[in-house]
């Protein structure tokens, strides 16, 4: 078997005195998009933060291609993993280009201005997210979907192999959700630059349609992992959400769709 992307061993995490994970082990395979699903408060975001090194676990280790994330310096980590929180801060008077340029932080040197490589990375990121036209706009003048793309462009400019996204679609309408997921698909399909995306999602239909692997979590436990057709079954839906449901492939893309019965 190929080496996993993330290897989580005996993870124990406490937040505010509450134990979120205890002795949690899992492996995320080295595929394009990995979706993390599960009910509210099951620890999806916490797991993502541990993968990104934002939360230091009390015990256990998270390895990225065999290297322990806890042992990396913050700069070395930021050159391999980009992270976007669920609700990025509202910035009043920053331009799109200004925000995307912040993604170059781990590559910048003290006392030196932005290098040619920095500028190239920014313009590539703007191009990939189709924001080149809007580069001088203020963030406040953008729509919700465009703003979300600007943040993703910042993560792209970071030029990391792995991008972690926490519910990037939650405030978007359906066409924008589809467009965003399509953008992520384009990113992982790009030749020469094999990016990996790990994304927390709420919408099971979207998750099944666009992800290569789904990881189901409930109450700090791993319920299921695998390609959507294997991970989403009536049994796992029951375990994840306590919901009786049927799962049928959709007629167009043959991806599993959950039909709740209650």
């Amino acid at each position: 078997m190929k080496q996993p992307l993330f290897d989580i061993q005996d993870l124990t995490v406490k937040l505010g005195g509450k134990r979120i994970y205890s002795q949690f082990s899992a492996q995320l395979p080295d595929v394009g998009i990995t979706g993390i699903i599960g009910p509210n408060g099951c620890g999806k975001s916490t797991l993502l933060r541990c993968l990104g090194g934002l939360t230091t676990p009390e015990n256990g280790s998270v390895r990225l291609r065999g290297a322990d994330i806890g042992h990396l310096s913050s700069i070395a980590r930021a050159r391999q993993i980009a992270f976007l929180p669920q609700e990025p801060p509202m910035l009043t008077d920053m331009t799109v280009e200004g925000l995307v340029a912040k993604g170059r932080t781990p590559w910048r040197k003290a006392f030196l201005p932005a290098s040619q490589a920095d500028r190239d990375a920014v313009s590539q990121a703007l191009e990939a997210t189709q924001l080149t036209e809007l580069r001088h706009r203020r963030l406040t003048a953008l729509s919700g979907g465009q703003r979300q793309r600007a943040w993703i462009a910042m993560a792209l400019a970071q030029q990391t192999e792995v991008i972690l996204l926490d519910e990037p679609t939650s405030y978007l309408d359906l066409p924008h959700q589809i467009r965003l997921m399509q953008l992520l698909r384009d990113l992982v399909a790009q030749k020469g630059q094999a990016r990996r995306v790990v994304v927390v999602l709420h919408d099971l239909t979207i998750a099944a349609r666009f992800c290569d692997t789904l990881v189901g979590l409930s109450d700090g436990k791993l319920i299921c992992a695998g390609p959507p057709s294997e991970a989403l079954t009536p049994k796992t839906v029951m375990q994840l959400y306590g919901l009786r449901a049927q799962v049928r492939p959709d007629p167009v893309f043959a991806r599993p769709v959950v039909y709740p019965e209650e």
């Binding site: 990104g52 913050s74 700069i75 980590r77 930021a78 976007l84 929180p85 932080t105 040197k109 003290a110």
Partner: peptide
């Protein structure tokens, strides 16, 4: 400020984004 400019440039982005960008 110039010496720490790399990190200081990320002010206003919030703790999570800053950590994600490798700021100590």
């Amino acid at each position: 400020v110039l010496w720490r400019a790399r990190d200081l440039r990320t002010l206003w982005l919030g703790d999570d984004v800053m950590t994600g960008l490798g700021v100590n």
